[in-house]
Amino acid sequence: MTDVIDETLASHNQTPEAVPEAGLFGKAVNAIGLLFAIGILASAGLLFYEVVMRYVFNAPTRWVHETVVFLSALAFVYGGLYAAAIDKHIRVVIFYDRLSAGMKRVFNILISLTCLIASLFFAWAAWLSVKRAAWTPQGDFRLETSGSAWNPPYPGLLKIFLLIILVLLVVQFTIFTINYLRRKGQA
C-alpha cells in the first residue's frame, strides 16, 4: 500500500510542463516562472525576518512589508500567464468534455481568440496607466512611488510589469489560436 501512496504522491508532485499548443513561448514562460517562484520563497523568509526584528530586537524595518507585497504582486500577475501557458486556469468542463473532438477544436479556437482580443484591450488600458505612472505631466521620467516613508518606486514598476504581462498574454493567446487552427497538439 505504501508504494501506491508513494507513487501517487510522486506523480502528483511532478513539476508541470507547458502544454504543446503553448509553443516554444509557453516553454519559456514555464522556465522563467522559476524566478517568481523564488520570489515567493523569499517573501516567506522576509516576513519571518520582519517578525524577528520587531519581536526580538524591537526594530521593525520599513522595507519588508512593501517588498513582500511587491514580490507577491509580481508572482500573482505572472502566475496568470504561467497558468495560461500550462493550461491550469480553473474552468468548468462538464459541458465541454462531452463535445466531439471537432467541436472541441472550434471551442478552443474561439476561446483563445476571445481571450486574445480581451487581453489586447487590457494591454491598451494598461499602457494608458503606465503613461501616468512613469512620466510626470511635464514629461519627465519619474516612476510612481508608494508614498511611504521608504517610498520605493514599486507602484510604477508594478504597473509597467502588468503592461508587459498583458502584452505577453496577447502573444500567448495568439500562439494558442494559431496552433488550434493548425490542429497542433491534441484538440
Binding site: 520587531r54 524591537n58 526594530a59 521593525p60 520599513r62 512589508h65 512593501e66 508608494s146 508614498g147 511611504s148 516613508a149 517610498n151
Partner: peptide
Amino acid sequence: PEGMVQNVFAAAGASPVN
C-alpha cells in the same frame, strides 16, 4: 500611516510599523 508621519515618529525615537 505611510509617509512623513512615520519619519517624524522615527525621528522622535519611536519604531513605526506598517
